[in-house]
């Protein structure tokens, strides 16, 4: 007996749930051969706003987790990716990647998660400090997460680059609202399904799909986003810098015109974690 095909409706992972865009709009995604593959949610600025509200709710709980626990959860997410490597590989091959290239990107993505999982309970030792002061005080500098970080991912390496931007931000207890690649959004859809089955609390990472042109201005001006991490072209960088100046947010903008090697060791760093923490200095009397 012939069986009707059961095709998946791609939905974005926002607020710990799989949702369609509030606008109900979608855009068609074709595979590498040009055949229709699926309709992808075309998220709007209202979806972004809702995602930020969700991220704000999840933030305090995530930041209160012990660093060790955050490391365990990131490692667990790595395990999830490893177990579903073939599905992720298929998602990457939709964009035209060869089988070998797709496998290489998935492996690098898992390694990147493990890398930051390792840093989770160690970055504080390196970034924090006990400062010498000429008075009977302990003087500590410690880090705190900033809050909600906006991420705008590039088209190349749609899985690895997205994770390379998202993971260092959440390692220190930030929450993230990310816009996946517009050209290759499907790996982010699958990643959302993995996030939902990992131990990461819902709403800590919110993944949107849609068009940069519609969403970049809102990323720029939304005052609840404390920082922006984006790969952007000159116009977008200008819009982001202007909006960030008005709303006093930190920016870490990579140039889309300059090719970034996401596989390189340089694409992962302690300093990517440092970019999304605030430093707090505490004076504590030593006593008699």
């Amino acid at each position: 007996m012939s069986r009707l095909p059961i095709t998946k409706t791609p939905k974005v992972y926002v607020g710990g749930a799989f949702i369609r865009s509030e606008s109900s709009r979608v855009f068609p995604l074709a595979d590498a051969a040009g055949n229709f593959f699926a309709n992808i949610p075309q998220c709007t600025r209202k979806d972004l706003r809702n995602a930020v509200e969700a991220a704000a709710k999840a933030g305090p709980g995530w930041a209160k987790r012990t660093a060790y626990n955050r490391g365990q959860i990131l490692y667990r997410l790595g395990e999830m990716l490893e177990a579903r490597a073939s599905e992720l590989g298929d998602a990457l091959r939709l964009g035209g990647a060869s089988k070998a290239a797709a496998a290489k990107e998935v492996t690098a993505s898992v390694d990147r998660l493990i890398y930051y999982a390792g840093w989770a309970d160690k970055y504080e030792q390196v970034l924090g400090n006990v400062n010498p002061v000429a008075a009977p005080y302990f003087n500590f500098t410690v880090t705190e997460p900033m809050g909600i970080v906006g991420v705008i991912a590039p088209d190349e390496a749609p899985l690895l680059a997205l994770l390379s931007l998202v993971v260092p931000a959440i390692t220190s207890g930030n929450t993230v609202v990310a816009l996946a690649s517009s050209a290759q959004p499907y790996p982010a859809i699958v990643l959302g399904e993995l996030l939902a089955t990992s131990d990461l609390p819902g709403s800590v990472v919110n993944l949107l799909t849609g068009f940069r042109k519609e969403l970049v201005p809102t990323f720029a001006t939304h005052t609840h986003l404390r920082a922006i991490s984006a790969v952007a072209n000159a116009d977008e960088r200008k819009a982001l810098a202007l909006g960030a100046a008005d709303s006093v947010k930190r920016t870490r903008l990579l140039k889309a015109e300059v090719r970034t090697d996401w596989f390189a060791d340089a694409a992962q760093s302690l300093y990517a974690i440092r970019d999304y923490v605030e430093f707090k200095t505490i004076w504590h009397p030593i006593g008699a």
Binding site: R49, V52, G59, A63, T175, T221, H222, T223, D246
Partner: peptide
């Protein structure tokens, strides 16, 4: 008024808001 979404902590929200 501004066209930009606002953070709740600009409006005398509890200090611990994220």
């Amino acid at each position: 008024r501004t066209g930009a979404y606002q953070a709740p902590y600009y409006f005398s929200e509890a200090a611990e808001s994220y």
